Amino acid sequence: MPSTPVRLTPSTVVLLLIPPLMWAGNAVVGRLMQGSIPPITFNFLRWVIAGALLLPLAAWVLRPGSGLWAQRRRLALLGLLGVGLYNALQYMALKTSTPINVTLVASSIPIWMLLLGRVLYGVPIARRSAIGAVLSLAGVAVVLARGDWAQLGALRLVAGDGWMLLAALTWAWYSWLLVRPPAGGYPPEIKGDWSAFLLAQIVFGLGWAGLMTAGEWLTLPASPAGHLQWGWPLGAALLYVAVGPSLLAYRSWGIGVARVGPTVAGFFNNLTPLFAALMSATLLGEPPRLYHAAGFVLIVGGILVSARR
């Protein structure tokens, strides 16, 4: 990463606020859909819909002569991490874990961003980045504790938290790959077209997700028809996760990471637990509390310190 200060413009801040907002809703919806659809199947159908929505914009990228095939190995890796694995692992985590635990584990992503950058790419960990990580994690802890530190002792880790930890590592690596293009770079027609670049990842990602879905159904108990509960709730959930957390969030995340790098962008991910808490408060009819404001100040403070502005 460059040693010069990162400039957080208003447009960049907005772009990096959209993903955690969408992903907070994704955690809530994923939890609500438990019992209505198997988690890996949910992820597969999500990306089928997202890919179908992108076809009118970027169907040309699937033609034999497009630049898609020249970088098929890198795009296959991006598709595995960002499409096939990350959300499938998150939905698997939500089978046994709660949205608040999932967002807590996901808040470790900035730490993995720093560590993977150092180990894989030789990027030194700046002191400001480390301080920013501590501040942001403190803000997450304030929200999770609801202003009472004794509440943190009541949190219990389950198997789903382990799946989410693996998902966090997956997302950290995916984000670094976005700003570390392969040798020779991507073909201009893909690099300059966000819909083509995302559809290229989805094409390969659906291959991985399809294989995992097949494995999931082979391991399901008898009467597989009972594992899918079709209806408007499932349809609405699939449409939301295909448009919001998929197309809108991935598009915004890609631009934001390109502008400020994965390390600074990773700190915005810590806003996900705050947004999740606010969503829960809204759904339950409870007004925001003082600890929400305190958590927000700490999380944003970590972002600003890490950006050195």
Rank of each mutant, 00 (worst) to 15 (best):
R259N: 07
V179E: 10
P56C: 01
L80E: 12
G261L: 08
G215Y: 00
L271N: 03
V305S: 09
A52R: 08
V14M: 13
T170C: 13
N43A: 15
L278F: 02
L298V: 08
R63D: 03
L120N: 11
A225I: 08
A130V: 04
V29F: 08
I40H: 10
G226L: 03
A167P: 08
E189V: 00
V257P: 01
L55S: 02
M164S: 06
V102A: 15
I18K: 00
R259W: 05
L137D: 04
G184P: 00
M1G: 12
P56A: 03
G185W: 07
G35S: 04
S175K: 03
A281M: 12
M113L: 13
G302S: 07
L116K: 01
L165I: 03
S66L: 07
E216Q: 15
V300T: 15
P38C: 05
L220N: 08
V142G: 00
I303G: 06
G122S: 11
A307D: 12
M212H: 07
G207R: 11
A294C: 12
P56V: 01
L17G: 04
A126V: 05
V143A: 11
P99F: 00
H292Q: 01
A154D: 14
I40K: 10
N270L: 02
A52H: 07
G122I: 04
G226F: 05
D148K: 12
A277Y: 03
T213H: 11
G210I: 10
L155A: 11
A138L: 14
P287R: 04
P187V: 00
G226Y: 10
A145G: 06
W112D: 06
V61S: 02
L198C: 08
L206A: 02
N43C: 10
G226E: 04
R309A: 10
W171L: 00
T9N: 01
L53H: 04
G65N: 14
T103P: 02
N270A: 09
V48G: 02
